[in-house]
Computed example of a mutant assay.
Amino acid sequence: MTRPHGYARYRLDGCRCYTCGWAVAQYNDAREHAMRRGTWQPYVDAEPVRVHVRNLQDCGMGLRTVAARAGVDRQRLQAVLNGRPERGTPPQQQVRPALAAAVLAVEPALDNLAPNTPISPLGTRRRAHALVAVGWPQHHLAVHLGMSPSNFGTMLKREHVLVRRALAVRAMYNALWRADPAEHGASLGGMARARAYAADRGWAPPGAWDDDTIDDPDAWPDWTGQCGTVEGFWAHRYITAPACQPCRDAFNADGRKRSAQSPKKAG
């Protein structure tokens, strides 16, 4: 593989073109300024990098995938993890700051995991429930995924779901949450039954979820735009939806506050 022109190609490949020479001059200038300021840090501790890579591996990411996402050579990560046994060298104790920053920025996101990695079903379940809440019959969703209705229902009850299935449900959710089920073959009766089924179980529609929090186990759906407040509690009544836990908590806390502030009757 041919390295792009720059500092590495100058040092490792001996290229002396203008671009490579300029990169080296810039690097040297920055280094000299940092040394004069006392901020020069050519290496950092490799242990945080090593721990992070092993955590990513525990989440189902292979070393090749980690290296690709970080934009570093896989052999460099192997040297950090295990050293170079063929040379009798132990794991690296220090790494360049740029390598550390690149690796530590890699997260075990869904797209980075192996297809058959088991993960929490929470986000998958919330997305499926949200689609039912806006009128998508479950058997239509099952067909969309190439599943039987019974397998679809079983998937939503399991303690884990495979990454490939979670990705498929996420793609389905992104494609259907604003679509009209009737335009995709759902009957009016089927849509009404789906909405009633979801309402009976308190399933939140897509509008109550934020894309950044729908997978967060600590997140709650915001049904009213004011959830978590007393106003949100009464807004639930207005839309005839059961109050969510944050709204109930806010209402109860407000009641206790009012009770504590009210003057006590003389005995």
Rank of each mutant, 00 (worst) to 15 (best):
R258D: 00
A192Y: 00
P118W: 04
A133H: 06
L12F: 08
W223K: 12
M35F: 01
L81P: 03
L12P: 02
R96N: 13
T213E: 07
A194N: 07
L99T: 15
Y7M: 15
P205K: 13
A30F: 03
G225E: 08
V66N: 05
M61W: 10
T2L: 15
G228Y: 10
Y197G: 10
W40T: 02
T124Y: 01
K257N: 12
V80E: 02
A109Q: 09
R11G: 02
Y10H: 15
P90H: 04
G135A: 03
A182V: 10
L167N: 06
A130C: 04
A171H: 09
H139C: 00
R31G: 02
Q245H: 11
T229C: 10
C247T: 09
D216H: 09
Q78C: 13
A102I: 05
V106N: 02
A128H: 01
L99N: 06
V24W: 08
C20Q: 01
A70Y: 07
N116E: 14
I214S: 06
F251P: 01
R3N: 12
R36D: 09
A46I: 03
Y173M: 06
G14Y: 02
R248A: 08
A98F: 01
I239G: 04
N174A: 14
Y197C: 13
Q245G: 00
G190Q: 08
A186K: 11
A235Q: 14
M61H: 09
M147N: 03
H184D: 00
D58W: 10
G225N: 10
A98S: 11
L113A: 00
A105W: 06
A30D: 14
N28D: 15
A250R: 08
R125Y: 00
H236S: 08
S259D: 00
A102R: 15
R74M: 13
H5G: 06
H33S: 09
L99P: 08
P217S: 09
P90S: 04
A253L: 14
C17S: 02
S187W: 05
A166Q: 00
P206H: 13
H129P: 01
I119R: 05
R69C: 08
V132D: 01
A67D: 02
G123F: 01
L122C: 03
A198Y: 04
R237E: 12
N116R: 15
F152D: 02
V53C: 09
R69P: 04
R69I: 04
W220C: 13
R237G: 14
R201T: 06
R164M: 00
C15W: 03
G135V: 04
G88L: 07
A68G: 12
A133V: 10
R84E: 11
R16E: 05
A204S: 12
Y7A: 15
A253M: 12
V95C: 03
D200P: 02
N174I: 11
A171W: 00
